[in-house]
Nucleic acid binder design. Structure first.
Lengths: 187, 187
DNA sequence: GACAAAGTGAACCGATCTGTACATTTATAG
DNA sequence: CTATAAATGTACAGATCGGTTCACTTTGTC
């Protein structure tokens, strides 16, 4: 029980960090954008980094839930769900405020691999890998682990390429590559 | 003529920005790390952003020269050069101070696509695409443009995955995928 | 050796940074 | 109504931010 303020803060801070970056967003800007007092913020989170970690947890929950559900909506059988991932990604890229992957950005701004924020970003990627490996195994594909890692390489590549904006439709390029990889790996 | 100080500044600033990030690196830190006075810096560059742009220009020159040369050393025929790109990447990932791609990080910290720094990062990726498309055409592969974009998606994916560090050997995963893609696209 | 260009160091500007202190107001209970 | 908890606004601390000023020293050239 007692949701509200704290959750509201994390939710709004997520938007601001995503659109603005982490270092570029100061606590005073968060006060302005979220309408929540600084005193309140520091009652819920001891440091800015703690707030960022909470934001990343929420982002992980939002994003994975959305992606997993969307893929299930788009396709029924496992092998087609793997491919549908890239259609889901295209929808994401086409959203107005698209600014790349929050976890890639977090690991770019907190580069040291010992930093908690960097680590949490890596955790997000690990969980994606586990989920999609399970789907690849259900699909009965040979070497599902390798194939999943390769599909996820295409995913990460499409994400940063869509943000850089120098290419027409990276999601569909990746989708075609994914199909070719899956066909090549099938008997 | 007259190289030295300015070039020395850009060269040393490149290291600091790469290891530390852009927003996280202040001008006073640059003074400390490069040993060049702030007065001198601001005589050569009007703003920090101007310095960053110069740093990215140098990085682009360094990186592309290295990658193009290394690939030619590793393979003779075009089709094998495309594949050798991923062996070159692996060498890069294994370097001690590896911290991902400077241009991806730049576009993460300067997200607005109208920002000169973001744009210059996109230019770097464009030039890579042109170069590798030419190689793919020399290789006589069908649809060389699409194939190149796909190989570059694998490359970007491997770069960020190697930095996140949650996967064993993304370069070799990408290499195997590249081989499969090329074989699938060959007659 | 003289002169100009290039570089230096340190102080300084106003703004902003993360984080704290404190007195006050607003909700939520019993 | 009253006691308690939660949230607020503001002012502030100390450090750092990007950038400027200025008097001085080094460097290269004729």
């Amino acid at each position: 029980m007692r949701p509200t303020k704290r959750d509201e803060l994390v939710q709004k801070a997520l938007q601001v960090f995503y659109q603005n970056g982490f270092h570029a967003t100061g606590m005073d800007m968060l006060v302005k954008e979220t309408g929540i007092s600084k005193t309140s913020m520091y009652k819920h989170f001891r440091t800015k980094d703690d707030l960022i970690l909470a934001v990343l947890r929420l982002r992980d929950e939002y994003f994975r839930n959305w992606l997993y559900r969307r893929i299930e909506e788009l396709a029924d059988i496992p092998i087609e769900q793997l491919i549908a991932m890239f259609d889901a990604l295209e929808e994401w890229f086409d959203e107005p405020g698209y600014k790349g992957c929050m976890f890639i950005k977090a690991s770019s701004e907190y580069q040291d691999s010992s930093h908690p924020i960097h680590n949490q970003a890596a955790d997000h990627k690990r969980m994606l890998e586990i989920h999609f490996t399970a789907i690849a195994m259900k699909a009965g594909l040979p070497n599902p682990k390798l194939l999943t890692r390769q599909l996820l390489l295409l995913k990460e590549g499409a994400i940063v390429t869509a943000h850089l904006g120098h290419t027409e439709n990276p999601a569909q390029d990746a989708k075609k590559a994914a199909i070719a990889l899956i066909e090549a790996s099938s008997p």
